[in-house]
Amino acid sequence: MARRNREIGKAGWGYTAITSVVGFIYFFPVFWIILTAFKTRTDALATPPKLFFTPTLDNFTSVFYRASITTGTSQATDMGLYFFNSIFIAGTSVGLALIVGTLAAYAFSRYPLRGNDTYLFIILTTRMMPPIVVIIPIFLMFRLSGLAGSYWGIILLYTAFNIPFSVWLVKSFFDELNPEIEDAARMDGATEGRVFFRFCIPQILAGLSATFVFGLILTWNEFLFALLLTGVETRTVPVAMARTLGGEVGVDYGLLAAIVTLFLIPIFFVTFLLQNQLLRGVTFGTVKK
């Protein structure tokens, strides 16, 4: 670890400057949205765009409390519920997919079946077509089974969509492990369950974190299935965000920016929390140990 840090530090000012510029270009849209969230409606629409303005928290207030068009009194919106839905649905489905995917990945890595590669390929094919291709059959299945609009319906769907990704990624982490370590544990008297939970899992925690975060980001931002398969009670933030567009007042950019800013926080928080693991996870196996 120490050696790797030193090598990163050696990069020099030229590289650091280039990286900073590229990083700034990538970050600028996010920065502009966050800035817009603190602007009044006039500032947000000003031409030329304003970089300096008096910040206001009004947009954030109106995410959760908005004046009703008809009565003019302040009214609670359902945004709190939608945030909960996003966190609950994404967290549960990615967590489930990781559990199922890890178990499957271990089996694929350690107990290969005849035609193993074919199975792995079939698993991957589910991710080869654009989701919109399967939207009609899935929508019908959900309507018929009564899963449409329920938490478990959308969680099930997201879990199914995350499993292939989890299996493939986690399998590559298991493949990297030294199998003699597991044999050593067995000879020491460890049962198969213990070998898996106490010896394999701890060695790939970084990889599991990376898989979790990638899956979470994909699921967190998913719009199409959420739009069609969630109901009023189970609506996620991306759908709720889309519904603020248009209507009587046109596009309220300040409000939208405030929702986006809030929407960034949980994912930012998780990524930040796992960033050390994440860095090791994505470089797993690329650096000779």
């Binding site: 030294n178 003699e180 370590i181 044999d183 050593a184 544990a185 067995r186 000879m187 008297g189 060695q203």
Partner: peptide, 17 residues
């Protein structure tokens, strides 16, 4: 494997990292 009363020193040492 478990309980044979044998142990092994592996070529890679296979210490639990």
């Amino acid at each position: 494997v478990q309980g044979r009363g044998m142990s092994m020193i592996f070529q890679t040492f296979a210490l639990y990292p």
